[in-house]
Nucleic acid binder design. Structure first.
Length: 771
DNA sequence: TGTGGATGCCTTTTT
DNA sequence: GGCATCCACA
């Protein structure tokens, strides 16, 4: 047990306390993973059987990494028997084992979010509701959050609160949709992501002997990132831990940033109320960052009221102050960052992979990419379309799904006419409504078209039968043929990518590549499983049961290349970089305008906390006066969160353009923007170093009016009659007193009160009309 | 049954 | 501005 020497006092205490429930509050960079892995290793060396340890994480990556590290400590022959994985992976495994008890078969499909939405959309259509009002995405998130809080469809329709809220939102029939959705999932032998947790709860609730079995078998339960658990997860863990009460949860309330996915920070805040005899361990030494960064982050998070107080400290050097830079435009911000990266990389003994650029929203990546490309700085961008979301991959996998589970309605709808085989929407609708009428799956209808009186012409019937028979041939081989061979045969026979194969365009080539990649992955999966588990045949069903729970982070390949990392702050949680740039530190962006309640605002602040604490040595923050977003230029003030950091940890840079490639930069700008730049300068609209954050009396957001292009008849006349009140970026609120036409340009005289009467060209002035 | 032009919409997303 | 989606048309 030499490895215990590597722990500090509080880590050691947390690791060796195994008699009852414990809560480990692990500050950023405090060695959380180390505590978890060592604790499990410690249990194993104490003679606890690996199969009686359940360790739950939120990502496959975290689980894999932890298993690997435990394996290094105690041997891989031991670590492989641990029940270690994501909530979803572990409980889908248990649900497959017990499927028959809850009306499923063990090869049930897992619907991903787009399957769920598409099914909901069909239901809305079938109910003859307007999908502009009943937006599938919105309905899905309501259902999802109901499930996360363990309300079944029956609970939902019975609950007057839901109905009241749905009526208020003008979608009173949401409950009905939920009920139908649940039925259809069941009929399709499919579970969505939320079902994996909901159905587990139902299983445990309705089958006490099953619960008892798992309670008995899991002598120790450990949960990582406990601050991100939702109610469904909380209850599963609580139920499972009831017998032994040997549960250890690890997390950091200050890093709870997933409430929008149902995570409930109360789970961690109130852990000690749930488990009265729980021990609390606080890991407060930060091994990652310099003193300055840690203190700055502390001073920020201190402004939150809901938290477990802790004293995070660093023993590393004082380090550099956090650099805060203000710029005029988002382009300039991006070029500044690119320049700084180039400089750091040359002078500071940093490689690109030590550097990350973090932002609040994915859309901010574009301008950043552009700047990095111009400077020839290699980067890797996270987020965006995942491998498994790509059309060609979804198509191929849908065939696999249909072969494995022919009741999978979403898969069937996706491939029944892809590639085109003369089965159109009309036919699919007939199939679907016939199936609904008889309460069976579409597949059942296909198998007995006569019995169900499917009203199609002979040609269509033949084509349907051909499709059905093709799938049946594959299905007959599902248990005997190797996953890769069957997959390969499906891809070839169905011709899913035949059109791409015949096409030489870059897009088609990449589609073919992606499918090859998928086949390769199946091959590897099958080989590995054969080797590791001495399985005789690895079937496509085996592969599918894992693949639906995989994400892009599990398929990252170029991790070792020297590139700058670009990602959202959410995606950066758990990572660390010597140097971190946080861009777009502006009101209306960060905090997100969607954060309305104090609780949501605190979550945004935690998100900023997460961003800062990613940095080991250097942290650069920037904000821009203007930003091009959603097709228009918006003006913004510095983020309120900057004021939450103690001034003494920051250094403000009053940056004017440091852009080297001025031409490239200005080419992006038309006269209009030039004028705005000058206005800013004239108005000294820059934070002086002494008073960096004095907010200018300026409206937060200004919507540009549609620019009047030459050919168009100006509409401003109708929009801007005399007497209209408008808002201007610099002058504030004013009243239109006169409109004229000069050289074909609309001009308005506007009285801005104290600021005087201004004559503005509407083409240039960004005015917001106040109603 | 496939395409194109108009329309609408935009946060974060470990599973 | 960019993307997905939808309806109108050939």
């Amino acid at each position: 047990m030499d490895f215990l020497n590597e722990l500090n006092k509080s880590q050691l205490e947390a690791v060796t306390y195994t008699d009852g429930p414990s809560l480990v509050i692990a500050g950023a960079g405090s060695g959380k993973t180390r505590v978890l892995t060592y604790k499990i290793a410690y249990l194993l060396t104490q003679g606890v059987s690996p199969a009686s340890i359940l360790a739950l994480t939120f990502t496959n990556k975290a689980a894999r990494e932890m298993r690997r590290r435990i394996g290094e400590l105690v041997g891989f022959q031991t670590s492989r028997y641990l029940w270690m994985g994501t909530f979803h992976a572990i409980f889908s495994r248990i649900l497959r084992n017990e499927a028959s008890l809850i009306g499923y078969t063990k090869d049930f499909t897992i619907y991903d979010t787009s399957d769920s939405k598409s099914l909901i959309k069909s239901i809305i259509k079938e109910m003859k509701l307007d999908d502009k009002i009943y937006k599938p995405g919105n309905i899905h998130s309501r259902i999802s959050s109901a499930k996360n809080n363990l309300y079944t469809a029956q609970d939902y329709v019975k609950n007057p609160d839901f109905l009241k809220s749905d009526i208020q939102s003008r979608i009173p029939r949401t409950g009905e949709i939920y009920a139908i959705y649940a039925n259809r999932c069941k009929q399709a032998n499919a579970m969505d992501f939320d079902d994996l947790l909901l159905q587990t709860n139902i299983l445990f609730r309705d089958h006490p002997q099953i619960l008892a079995k798992y309670q008995h078998s899991f002598a120790y339960i450990l949960v990582d990132e406990y601050q991100d658990t939702n109610f469904a997860q909380y209850l599963i863990v609580k139920k499972l831990a009831e017998r032994h009460e040997r549960i250890c949860v690890v997390g950091d309330d200050a890093q709870s940033i997933y409430s929008f996915r149902g995570a409930n920070i109360d789970n961690i805040l109130k852990f000690q109320q749930t488990y009265r005899n729980a021990r609390l361990f606080k890991l407060e030494q930060n091994y990652r960052s310099t003193k300055n960064i840690v203190k700055a982050a502390n001073s920020l998070i201190d402004k939150n009221s809901e938290q477990i107080r802790k004293n995070i400290f660093s023993e590393k050097e004082e380090g550099n102050l956090i650099q805060v830079t203000s710029v005029l435009t988002d382009f300039e911000e991006a070029f500044n960052v690119a320049n700084s990266i180039a400089r750091l990389q040359k002078t500071e003994n940093l490689t690109y992979s030590h550097i990350a650029v973090l932002y609040r929203t994915n859309s901010q990546s574009r301008v950043m990419e552009e700047a990095l490309r111009k400077q020839n700085i290699p980067y890797r961008i996270y987020g965006g379309l995942s491998f498994y979301q790509r059309k060609e991959i979804k198509d191929v996998i849908s065939y696999f799904r249909l072969v494995t589970n022919s009741n999978d309605e979403e898969a069937l709808k996706r491939v029944i006419n892809y590639p085109a085989r003369g089965i159109g929407d009309v036919t699919v609708d007939k199939l679907s409504s016939t199936a609904q009428l008889h309460g069976v799956s579409i597949w059942s209808v296909l198998h007995d078209m006569l019995k169900y009186n499917l009203n199609v012409n002979a040609g269509t019937a033949t084509r349907l039968a051909q499709f059905r028979d093709m799938i049946d041939v594959f299905a007959a081989q599902i248990d005997t043929l190797d996953a890769y061979e069957l997959a390969d045969s499906i891809v070839k026979t169905t011709g899913v990518i035949a059109d791409a194969m015949n096409d030489r365009s870059a897009e088609s080539l990449s589609r073919v590549d992606n499918v090859q990649e998928l086949l390769k992955a199946i091959h590897e999966f099958s080989e590995n499983k054969r080797k590791e588990e001495h399985a005789e045949t690895v079937t496509l069903t085996d592969f599918l049961s894992e693949v639906s729970l995989l994400t892009d982070q599990d398929t990252e390949k170029d991790e070792n290349e020297d590139k700058v990392t670009l990602m959202t702050i959410h995606a950066a949680k758990g990572l660390e970089f010597r140097c971190v740039f946080i861009v777009g530190m502006e009101e209306q962006l960060f905090p997100s305008p969607y954060a309305e309640t104090p609780r949501e605002m605190e979550e945004e602040r935690r998100l900023f906390y997460v961003a800062i604490t990613r940095a080991e040595e250097n942290c650069f923050i920037s904000y821009s006066k203007s930003r091009f977003r959603n097709g228009q230029t918006n003006f913004a003030n510095p983020s309120r969160f900057l004021k939450d950091i103690d001034r003494k940890f920051l250094e403000y840079n009053d940056e004017v353009s440091t852009t080297t490639d001025k031409n490239a930069f200005f080419n992006r700008w038309d006269d209009e923007v030039e004028i705005e730049r000058n206005r800013f300068r004239q108005n000294s609209f820059r934070p002086a170093s002494s008073e960096p954050l004095k907010e200018p009396a300026q409206p937060r957001k200004l919507k540009k009016m549609s620019p009047s292009t030459e050919s168009e008849t100006p509409v401003e006349n109708t929009n801007l009659p005399v007497g209209t009140f408008v808002k201007h970026g610099i002058f504030g609120i004013g009243k239109v007193i006169k409109t004229t036409l000069a050289d074909g340009n609309e001009k308005a005289e506007i009285d801005f009160g104290e600021k005087g009467v201004k004559s503005l060209l509407l083409k240039f002035a960004r005015l917001e009309i106040l109603k």
